[in-house]
């Protein structure tokens, strides 16, 4: 399971594929204040990315990879 959901945080692990996007979208809809954690994430499929961009969750941790982090910061805001 490349996305681990805990109480209000979704933790992305390694490469998150297209098939996880639907689950992610549903989860985000259920949450009041969703948080996402990319610290262990190396890539996520564009479908997930656009779901995140639409939902604008709070980002608890950015990816370690600086280049990847820059992409996500550009997309999800630098908050």
């Amino acid at each position: 399971m490349p996305i681990k959901y805990t109480k209000n945080t979704a933790r992305f692990i390694d490469t998150v594929g297209v098939e996880d996007a639907e689950g992610l979208l549903e989860w985000l809809q259920r949450q009041q204040k969703p948080k996402v954690n990319f610290s262990a994430c190396s890539h996520l499929h564009a479908a997930n990315l656009q779901v995140l961009m639409a939902a604008k969750p709070v980002v608890a941790a950015w990816p370690e990879d600086a280049e990847f982090a820059a992409w996500l910061q550009g997309a999800l805001g630098r908050n």
Binding site: V18, A21, E22, L24, L25, L28, Q29, A46, A47, N48, L49, Q50, V51, M53, A54, A55, A70, W71, G74, A75
Partner: peptide
């Protein structure tokens, strides 16, 4: 050197979002 991802259109409500139609 630098890449940015943008939304093609303003994002709809989550409930109306079709996550499998690429809008990036």
């Amino acid at each position: 050197v630098q890449g940015m991802v943008l939304a093609r259109t303003p994002w709809p409500q989550l409930g109306e979002l079709d996550c499998y139609r690429c809008l990036l």
